[in-house]
Design a protein around this nucleic acid. Structure first.
Lengths: 210, 210
DNA sequence: TAGATAGCTATTGTATGCAATACTGCGTCC
DNA sequence: GGACGCAGTATTGCATACAATAGCTATCTA
């Protein structure tokens, strides 16, 4: 049998389609069509859809299947602070020992972002890497699971509305301040700048609706 | 068709079986047997199992199906503070307007608990009601979803190891202090007592392993 | 006797089939 | 002209069927 269940691959693929709008907000998911397009049967496809509904990336309408939830600016305003607080908590729960070497690794990514900002590289991917690295030492897998489940919801708004380079420079600066605070063991400052970083990202939402 | 999908009912039923130990920790779930026992086919049953795996109440072992995760005291020590912080966050995000009337309602439940403590009533259920009421005004549905997804994991430890009445009196006192702080609009005190309440519950874990 | 191995069974993962509901288009009635 | 209703189709939700792997037992070998 497949060592990796089909539903896992499908879940990723469908997540991608929701995030980039190939499955547009507000539309229903047609299981037969999608299954045919993905070359699988409806069973593992439905399993993936159920997983996505559990994460909130789809909603299940009894008798009508699954649908991509419509965009709601209010929801974005609730998601950003939530992810901010969760990441800050993960940071506060990372012990000083586990933080060893992390600031340097973070700044290395920041350097890459600075270069990408000049050459027009992939800022969004690097931003993701920076945050993933920040959380990589947190010893609470359940908290990490919640963060991983919530971020895609937020990324949907990001990719739909984000003025990509709008505040990239500012954001890199905040990232460096966080790394500096961590280097001095000042978790309180690090986590409050982190929250501010997320909240500012929210403020840029919708400023340049492409 | 069913207005409520079978998988939802099944999810609840199986949650109950995991929590009360009818599906013991460390064992595999046999889909055919369980489906027969519940009088349904494997399809909606698997859908429910996948939902439970997403919440962490089961784990999926590729090729070997689903299994009930073994108990791990370390996990309990990570779950209690997590739920504590999540509830405290939900409380801080509830606006003063929305809090109107809540302290009285909370104290009414505390009164019931005081009576139940004397007569040997259902303390655990009342405690759940108190916490549910506390969160009922929080305007962030995503945060509430995370809390609802995490609590069952914790309840499994509670029902397995909790010295039920061990600290009930103390806990009721904390509940009343939280309600009092809310009445005065002192969210900071309320949320810190709330965290302490959860952390104390953790401290009682394992003191009286039945 | 311990370990390996081969064959068999049990169980999962995926595909397909079936029944009931939801949607669509057209006709009819007010 | 618009609302209602009805028939036909599309789609979901659940059940069953099939294929491949995992696990177990018994036998064989060193």
């Amino acid at each position: 049998m497949a060592r990796t269940p089909l539903r896992s691959d499908l879940l990723e693929q469908i997540t991608g389609r929701v995030l980039d709008g190939r499955l547009p907000a507000g539309t229903r998911v047609n299981e037969v069509h999608l299954a045919k397009e993905l070359g699988v049967s409806r069973t593992p496809l439905r399993e993936a859809l159920i997983g996505l509904a559990d994460r909130g990336l789809l909603v299940s309408a009894p008798g009508r299947g699954f649908l991509v939830p419509p965009f709601d600016p209010g929801e974005a305003r609730r998601l950003y602070p939530l992810v901010a607080e969760l990441e800050a908590l993960a940071l506060r729960w990372t012990s000083p020992l586990e933080l060893a070497g992390l600031p340097d690794a973070l700044d290395a990514v920041s350097d890459e972002m600075t270069r990408a900002l000049a050459d027009g590289g992939d800022l969004s991917g690097l931003d993701d890497r920076w945050h993933a690295l920040l959380l990589s030492r947190c010893p609470n897998p359940h908290l990490l699971r919640l963060i991983e489940q919530t971020k895609p919801l937020l990324k949907r708004y990001e990719s739909a509305y984000f003025a990509r380079d709008g505040h990239a420079g500012e954001s890199i600066g905040e990232h460096r301040r966080i790394a500096a605070a961590l280097r001095e063991g000042d978790l309180a400052t690090a986590s409050s700048v982190l929250v501010a970083n997320w909240v500012k990202a929210l403020a840029y939402l919708g400023k340049d609706r492409r």
